[in-house]
Design a protein around this nucleic acid. Structure first.
Lengths: 67, 67
DNA sequence: GAAATTTGTAAAATATACTTGACAAAAAGA
DNA sequence: TCTTTTTGTCAAGTATATTTTACAAATTTC
């Protein structure tokens, strides 16, 4: 499932995937894969992304419904 | 760094590490390692733990200060 | 509409999350 | 004290997160 909240938060800071990736010290493909979904990043990376984008874990990564 | 919030939330539900592990479909050692700290679980596992314990990501896994 | 930037995606390699099995120490219950 | 349960930890293996390189499609900018 796509993570549109992340895509939106990144857009709000006017950052490209590559810029966000650099700030999180991770590759561009990793950011792309997370936004694309079907991906299971580590909590430390999620926290790093949240801090760069000024959001919390719940705001960007919490999922209400999960099969 | 130890995750005492997780340990506390588990105690509040009166669950052993092994019981929590079973409910999260993960090994006991993995739960032990997460509570012990120095560990970097995936976001999906964190979400599974949160749901079992009735907590949110921010409550159990958010970190204010990170070197 | 050409050039530059951004994004999607794929394959192979590497790093690391997680498992399994096992044993000892600590804690809890009798 | 004795027994049972819980927890810490280690070593070797498996699964998967992440990297690197690369190319094409899409978007933006001039």
């Amino acid at each position: 499932m796509k993570n549109l909240r992340l895509k939106s938060a990144r857009a709000a800071k006017d950052l490209s995937q590559e810029q966000l990736a650099d700030l999180c010290k991770v590759s561009r493909q990793t950011i792309s894969a997370i936004e694309k979904g079907d991906y299971n990043p580590t909590i430390n990376l999620c926290i790093a992304i949240c801090k760069v984008l000024g959001k919390t874990l719940d705001e960007l990564f919490w999922i209400e419904e999960e099969a």
